[in-house]
């Protein structure tokens, strides 16, 4: 007899795929009811999408003007109120979930399990620590709500095909005015989203400049891949921050990951541990990335990329 509330993540008014991954994780528990909570100024589109996820019993919506942007300080008290009679509250381990879930947990007076990669029992989970260099099995003591974030790279989206009922709710919460949204600078592109892409091509410091990164983009477009980068490439200003892959960037699990001019620091490798096939191209035969690459090619990326583009 347990109920799980999954906090939906929205991109504008659309449902982010991380929500279906949280439902997949929730399904791994033996729950009697999995409900999805949507907080937005216009819930319709996301609610309709969430209703289709297999395993979802009900979609709950809180539609209000103050929910137009994902401000943790505004959302957390509503989440805490809505979560009152649930045993579990799950959110994605994306920047959205990382921001709001611990705030909700603290309001509920409990700790949080971050980054669930596997469920091993009703109160037992596996999570990565030390940048994924160790796996910690944790257990939450009886008698308290379990608030957790779900490591999205570890879970496949739950299938569609459902038609769960949608119900509007009005959790009673004080909405603070001390936090205000100003704006978002986004580099939305036509390329596949890094976190959902089946193929990802990444460039590192070895790419050398923003102009040279065009080579990486061209190759990606040729094979329909998303584009990522190392921290060094982002810090150097070659590409924007949202492209960073790794411990402090995005954790991804594409079928194919190709790294050009990336040395393979542990913080970068943390982000690609779950990739299907890792290909590394580096001019230094000693580069640590070759230790974990499935296919390695020692070579100059400025020669390899154009040739590869021509031959693929």
């Amino acid at each position: 007899m347990s109920k799980i509330l999954v906090i939906a993540e929205l991109d504008g008014h659309a449902l982010n795929p991380s929500t279906a991954k949280c439902v997949a994780c929730a399904t791994a528990l033996d729950a009697t009811e999995i409900n999805v909570l949507i907080l937005s100024d216009q819930c319709g589109e996301a609610a309709a999408a969430a209703a289709q996820i297999t395993g979802v019993a009900k979609v709950l919506t809180v539609e209000a003007a103050h929910n137009s942007q994902p401000l943790a300080a505004v959302l957390a008290p509503q989440i805490a109120a809505a979560a009152a009679d649930y045993d579990y509250v799950f959110g994605p381990s994306t920047t959205f979930g990382k921001d709001v879930m611990p705030r909700a947990a603290a309001l509920l007076g409990v700790g949080q399990v971050s980054d669930i990669m596997a469920v091993s029992g009703p109160r037992s989970f596996q999570r990565p620590v030390y940048a994924g260099n160790a796996i910690l099995a944790v257990e939450v003591p009886e008698g308290r709500k379990i608030v957790a974030t779900v490591r999205t790279a570890s879970w496949k989206e739950a299938a569609g095909g459902n038609s769960a009922p949608i119900e509007a709710i009005e959790p009673v919460a004080d909405i603070p005015s001390h936090t205000r949204y100003v704006g978002l600078e986004s580099h939305a592109s036509e390329r596949p989203d890094l976190q959902a892409a089946k193929k990802v091509i990444s460039g590192g410091r070895g790419v050398g400049s923003a102009e040279n990164f065009e080579l990486v983009f061209k190759l990606a477009d040729k094979i329909g891949a998303g584009v990522g980068a190392s921290r060094a490439a982002v810090d150097a200003g070659y590409v924007p921050n949202d492209m960073q892959v790794g411990q402090t960037g995005k954790i991804i699990a594409p079928d194919l990951y190709m790294a050009f001019g990336i040395s393979g620091a542990i913080q970068h490798l943390t982000g690609i541990k779950d990739a299907g096939t890792i290909v590394a191209i580096n001019k230094d035969p000693e580069a640590p990335i070759f230790e974990i690459a499935d296919i390695g090619l020692v070579g100059d990326l400025f020669e390899v990329i154009p040739e590869l583009e021509a031959k693929l």
Binding site: V110, Q112, A137, V138, K273, I295, G296, L297
Partner: peptide
Amino acid sequence: PQVNAVNWSAPAGRTKGVQVNSVDELV
């Protein structure tokens, strides 16, 4: 503690794969 640490283990490591010598071999 809110969450009890039960057991620590090393992650399933990735192993070194093959080295190719040309773009043709890579393709």
